[in-house]
Computed example of a mutant assay.
Amino acid sequence: MTYTKDSGLVKVWVGLLLSGAYTLDQVPNLFNLKTVVAEVVNGTDV
C-alpha cells in the first residue's frame, strides 16, 4: 500500500501536525505515511 497527498489518513495526520496535537516523530512508520505527511507539511509536492 502506498499513500498519496490525497489519502484520507495523510490528511488526518497533516491536520493533527498543523494543529500542534502531534509532532512528526509521532506519525507511525506505516508504509510511506510518514514520508508523505512530512512532504505535505514541509510544502514539497508529492
Rank of each mutant, 00 (worst) to 15 (best):
V40R: 01
D45N: 13
S7H: 00
L18W: 08
L24G: 15
L18F: 06
V36L: 09
K11G: 03
T23Q: 12
L16K: 12
K34P: 11
S7P: 00
N42L: 14
L18E: 15
D6W: 03
F31Q: 13
V37I: 11
G20R: 08
W13H: 12
V46M: 13
N42I: 08
K11N: 09
M1C: 01
T35C: 00
V14M: 04
V10Y: 03
L33Y: 04
A38G: 10
N29Q: 13
T44D: 09
T2G: 00
G8S: 10
T35A: 10
A21C: 03
L17R: 05
T23K: 13
S7A: 13
T44W: 14
L17N: 05
V27T: 01
M1I: 04
N42A: 14
Y22A: 12
L33G: 03
T4A: 11
Q26H: 06
V12P: 08
A21I: 13
G43M: 12
K11V: 03
K34T: 05
W13E: 11
T44V: 15
T4N: 08
V37L: 09
Y3P: 00
W13A: 10
G8E: 10
L16G: 08
G15K: 06
V40C: 14
A21G: 07
G20L: 09
T35M: 07
Y22H: 15
G8Y: 08
V12I: 14
A38Q: 13
V10W: 01
V37R: 02
V36S: 02
G20D: 14
L16M: 13
T35H: 01
W13K: 06
T35S: 05
M1G: 02
D6I: 02
D6R: 10
N32L: 02
T35P: 00
E39K: 13
F31N: 12
G43T: 05
K11C: 05
L30T: 09
L33S: 01
V36F: 05
S7V: 00
P28K: 07
V40D: 03
D25A: 08
Q26S: 10
L24S: 15
A21S: 07
N29D: 15
P28Y: 07
V27M: 01
V40S: 02
S19N: 11
V27F: 04
T2P: 01
G8F: 09
T23F: 07
S19F: 07
V37H: 02
N29M: 12
L18C: 03
V14L: 04
G8W: 07
S19A: 10
V46S: 10
L18R: 13
D45L: 14
E39V: 07
V10K: 03
T23Y: 01
T4F: 02
S7Q: 06
V41G: 03
F31H: 14
V41E: 01
N42R: 14
L30K: 08
V37C: 08
V12H: 12
Q26P: 00
